[in-house]
Design a protein around this nucleic acid. Sequence first.
DNA 1: ACGAGATGTTACTGACCAGTCACTAACCTG
DNA 2: CAGGTTAGTGACTGGTCAGTAACATCTCGT
Lengths: 216, 216
Amino acid sequence: MSAKSMAAAVPLVSEAPARSEKPRVRDRIRDSAADLFYRHGIRGVCVDAIVEDAGTNKMSFYRAFPSKDDLVAEYLKDQERGYWQWWDDAVAPHAGDARRQVEALMQAVVDLVKAKAKNDCGCRSSRGCALGNAAVEIPEDNDKLNAIVHDYKAEIRRRLRRYAREMSAREPDSLGDALMLLLEGGYYTRLTFPNNSGPVTSIAKAARALIDAHMS
Amino acid sequence: MSAKSMAAAVPLVSEAPARSEKPRVRDRIRDSAADLFYRHGIRGVCVDAIVEDAGTNKMSFYRAFPSKDDLVAEYLKDQERGYWQWWDDAVAPHAGDARRQVEALMQAVVDLVKAKAKNDCGCRSSRGCALGNAAVEIPEDNDKLNAIVHDYKAEIRRRLRRYAREMSAREPDSLGDALMLLLEGGYYTRLTFPNNSGPVTSIAKAARALIDAHMS
DNA sequence: ACGAGATGTTACTGACCAGTCACTAACCTG
DNA sequence: CAGGTTAGTGACTGGTCAGTAACATCTCGT
C-alpha cells in the first residue's frame, strides 16, 4: 500500500527477465476475475478457477477478499471506472460541443467492436456490458451489487440527457433516452452477434439521425 | 402427445371446480420453470426449486426431461414462440403498412412495460428479454442453447430489416438495425429500470424519428 | 375390478463450491 | 539476524446441485 512497497516492485538492477515482476496477489486476483467474470459470467466462475488463473491459492484469496461477493463488487466498480475512462477519453476532443461528443462516443463504440480483441484502454467489448450482464445474474435481494449496477446505468442516462440538453435539442430527455437505448442495444446485441457485422455497426449513423430529428 | 391425451385434459362434464383441472406434470414443470428462469436466471434456479414450485418431485422431472438443459431448451423455445405470437398480434392490424406495423410494435413494447405485471398474452417483460438474458448465462461451448438464442435474434433483425425495406426507406438495413438497437436496448434497460419510467418509455417516439429520418 | 401408465417418496451418489484451519516458506525491513 | 508481513499447501467442513435407484401409490380407461 505504501509508496515504498510500490517502489520495491520495480527492480533496481536489471535482473533475470524471464518472467516480468509478478504483481501483488490481490491485483492478480482482480485481473483474473475481471477476465473470467466477463467471459463466463459471475455465476459461471468459481473461486478455485479464479485463484488458479491468478497463479495463487484460495487462502490468499480469502486473505485479500472477505468473500466472493466482495470481489464481485470490486470487479463491477473496476469495470465502471474503466468505462468512464473510456467514455471521457472518447468525448474529450470535443469538449463544449455536445453533439460532436455524442457522435464521437457512438463512433468509439463502433471502433471498439471492430477492434480485434481487448484493446489498449482495457475495455472489453466482445460480450457487451459487464455491468449490464451482471444485472442478469445478481439475485434481486442482493442490494449492494444491484445498487452498483443501477447507479451506473442511471449515470449513463443522466449524461446522455445532459448532452441532449446542452445541444439544445427539442425534448432533450427523450433524445437522451433514445441514445441510451441505442447504446444499450449495442451492448446487448454483442452477446449474440459477436462478430463485426452485428446491428451495433449502425449505431453511429442511427445516433446522428436521431439527433437531427431533435434539432429542427 | 397423442390427440387422445390432449382431449382427456378437457373435462367432458362440469365438475368440482374447487381446483381447476391440474395439468399434466410436464406442463406444470414447464410453467414453473418459465416463471423461475425468467425471474432468477437459468443458473439461479435449481431443479429442486422447479419441482417444488410445480408441486411435484424430482423423479417426475427426470421422467419428463432427460436433463435440466433439455428443459432450458424447451423454455427458450417456448419463450420465443410466445414472443412471435405477441409480435404478430401487435402488427396484425396494420398488415401491408410496414411503417405502421413497426410503430405498433414499438408502442406494444411501451404498453407491455406500463402493464402491471405479466399480462394476458403470457409475455413477461419486467426483466427484459428471456432469450437475451439467457445469452449471458449460457456457456460458450453449449452450441445447442446458443443456437436457439442466435437464431431468434437473427430473426428479429431479419424482420426489422424487411419492414424497413417494405416501407421503401433509404438504407433499409441501417434503419432495421437501428430499430433493433432500440428494441434490444429497451429490453436490456428493463433489468435496471424495472419501473415504468425507464428509457424504454421513449422507444416509440424514437422509432418514429428514426423512420422519418430514413424516408426523405 | 383390473391392469397399465402416470405420479409420488425416500434415500442415495458424485460432483462442485464457498469458506476455514493449521502449518510452512519466502521475503522485506529494521 | 529478528520479527513482521506476505504468500503457499493440503486437508477439511458444510452445503448445494444434477441425476439415479427402488419401491409405493394413484388414476383412468376398459
